[in-house]
Design a protein around this nucleic acid. Structure first.
Lengths: 254, 254
DNA sequence: CGACATTTCCTGTCATGACAAGTGGAGTTC
DNA sequence: GAACTCCACTTGTCATGACAGGAAATGTCG
């Protein structure tokens, strides 16, 4: 019970929204009523409502009680960074087959992305990622040496690399993702089980500390029939980003 | 001077950040100092700081004055919705070649996406979009009839369709984007000047009113060497999404 | 001179009180 | 019955005051 009051109020409201007790479109209790329920003043109550509003969960205005706008609670950072986390969250079974883990001098492109000198030792990891046992993505990740060395003490098949790295004190707080499309090369084709030249959705990711120091760079290539990326965008709320899997609305225009 | 005080404070701080008067990394004035400057109490000052924090502009914490985290002021919605707006914003010249504007009964996939009955009349628009005169994207957009009909009264070459529609009272407040990769079909190949089968970055977009009523559905296919999409993601700030153009860091791993 | 304790500053949190402004419904009038 | 007016309710905005807790500067002691 040491958490601040306004956080507890916000958590409770989030829970009531996520559980369906407050469905989409419902007007939630007035500030005065919340003050009574929590025996609090308007300060913490309004702070909690402001938090939910900033998350895009509720909307509404002057003179009208706030409305529930969406039941979807955002948790972007983890799920966008970690394939395993994301798969677990949507109820799918993540898997992987390690192809290679190697110490290697950095090529120029890698050196640029990681802000190290060309030829400096880096750790390269090549993995095939599976979703419910089916090939979904080929991941080529490069870590700076002092981070990558931690991986040699880690059972790579036992779980999320990111959870392990964060636990070991690596500060992964910033990430930049760039999306484009590339044809499958021979390695991609072999691992993903598609013909060479098949269009793949590529995500290039740089992740690092809050100060901007890069720790990893990755080139991930997805089978577009297995995984897509989504952005939900509203005028008056921050955007929500995420992955999606399987057969979303297959609306192909010809 | 009728705007609320906390908005004026927030605007002023945003201006000072954008202008470089408060560079990235600088600690901005303490709450007490801001209270003096504006002859206000802590309430409005803290509300302004909270707004900037929610926008990801500032960070910092207890006991330490807030720091400027980034000088980039976010305005995601317009630029992600409208190709023209985005191009202008990054200082490139948008262009287009209308291929087709037609009234047509909705096929099943379109009907699903727009929540209308199959066979109902919709307006289909096929455009080639240019960036500095070079082909960048093929856009296949479908509008529900009452929105699409407005386009017949509009000079399609004169500017942004979205600006026009919003001006005419169409409420475009929500958008959902799904990204994957597809091979260029014959039309794509001809318009974009690439061989058929070339991987293209596809964005499927549904946009509509705040209530969730869809007004348009679009299938946009980008030349990945001309345009990419980016997501910047921090642990403690809302994600920033956007397009990028030209030769970003070409870090291709093999 | 360096390590440690103290002090001071700053933000986070919360209470109380007050007024302005918008919404919606009840009551009234035509 | 329809349109209008009025009022209760609700949120937005702002002031004042108070205390806790973290960070950094300062002073002190070995």
């Amino acid at each position: 019970m040491d958490r601040p009051l306004h956080e507890r109020i916000a958590d409770d409201l989030r829970r009531r929204i996520a559980s369906g007790e407050l469905p989409v479109g419902a007007t939630l209790p007035s500030e005065a009523r919340l003050c009574e329920e929590w025996a609090a003043s308007r300060g913490p109550v309004r702070q909690a409502l402001g938090t939910l509003r900033a998350e895009g969960l509720i909307g509404g205005g002057r003179g009208r009680s706030p409305e529930v706008r969406t039941g979807q609670v955002p948790q972007p950072f983890d799920t966008l960074l970690s394939f395993s986390r994301w798969a677990e969250r949507i109820g799918r079974v993540p898997g992987q087959r390690i192809q290679e883990l190697a110490l290697r001098p950095a090529r120029r492109e890698v050196a640029d992305a990681l802000a190290v000198d060309e030829g400096e030792t880096v750790v390269e990891l090549l993995r095939l990622r599976l979703l419910d046992g089916r090939p979904a993505m080929v991941e080529r990740t490069v870590f700076v040496e002092h981070v990558g060395r931690l991986l040699f003490d880690f059972d790579l098949d036992s779980g999320s690399i990111y959870a392990y790295l964060i636990e070991r004190g690596v500060e992964l707080a910033l990430a930049r993702h760039v999306f484009d499309a590339v044809p499958a090369d021979d390695t991609d084709a072999r691992l993903l089980g598609v013909p060479a030249g098949t269009p793949l959705l590529r995500e290039r990711r740089r992740a690092g500390s809050l100060a901007g120091e890069p720790y990893e760079f990755s080139d991930d290539r997805y089978r577009p029939d297995q995984v897509t990326f989504t952005i939900e965008n509203a005028q008056q709320a921050p955007p929500m980003v995420g992955r999606a899997s399987g057969s979303v609305t297959e609306s192909v225009l010809t």
